[in-house]
Design a protein around this nucleic acid. Structure first.
Lengths: 130, 130
DNA sequence: TTCCTTGCAAATCGTTTGCATAATG
DNA sequence: CATTATGCAAACGATTTGCAAGGAA
């Protein structure tokens, strides 16, 4: 059960994450939260991110590029990793789970879920430079 | 261009990968190839896996669990990561790229590709124990 | 007082890299 | 000979963890 106690650090982390839509990494979160909470340690940031993600209050993204990113928006949506600038942007599209589930129905075993993400060039990077 | 020279080590690695359908990690590959090639180093294994993957001769899988796996089968297919035993099994299903592409068409930017994998319980693990 | 949390630093772990030497074309 | 590939070990980078001290219920 792990009765959870309140902590100023955890609040700052979650609060910060809610103001961002760019899926920051633990390190970025650390450097930002630090401004209002100078003594917080990177370990604490990681511990809380893991805890919040397990509790379903935030989500942890792994886009296969070696770093985990965190998202305060837990509503169903997809992501695109820009190959040019490395940023991750939201991609709102119709829920494709139905298609995937139907396709996977023939599998002899049990499918719990799936992960899908896209890569390409984000809007900002595909605009011509002035 | 990087003219590629022949090497016994690279051959063993690729050869080994062709005999497996279980998507081994670099370390597993290392320990196996070592049996016929006692002096090979882990660094060489990594260098060659990266090289072969870039050349499109094998593919590198990242299932978000911290380790990279390698697949000698480069034909289009999907994968499932078993949450019970940690193994990765092939999942043959109709190509869903069309669906994804259509869904992503509305995106204001350029989509190069996508990554999709499943997780759940593999056939072996979902069979009742005797 | 109990026990969850923190800060700090050290430890992990998978993967990459620098360098001198060996092998290939 | 010009270059690519290797073995070894050290370096890396992201994340986790042990521990003693601090804070919440």
């Amino acid at each position: 059960m792990a009765a959870r106690k309140h902590s100023r650090q955890r609040d700052s982390i979650k609060e910060f994450l809610m103001t961002r839509t760019d899926h920051p990494t633990a390190d970025v979160i650390y450097r930002n939260v630090r401004q209002h909470n100078p003594n917080i340690s990177l370990g604490t940031v990681y511990r809380n991110l893991t805890l919040l993600a397990q509790a379903g209050e935030i989500s942890r993204l792994n886009m296969g590029d070696g770093v985990d990113r965190f998202d305060g928006d837990t509503s169903p949506h997809y992501h695109l990793l820009c190959e040019r600038c490395g940023s991750v942007v939201d991609l709102k599209l119709e829920d494709i789970s139905a298609v995937l589930e139907k396709a996977a129905a023939q599998f002899d075993g049990h499918i719990t879920g799936h992960v899908t993400y896209f890569y390409g060039i984000c809007r900002r990077c595909s605009k011509p430079t002035i």
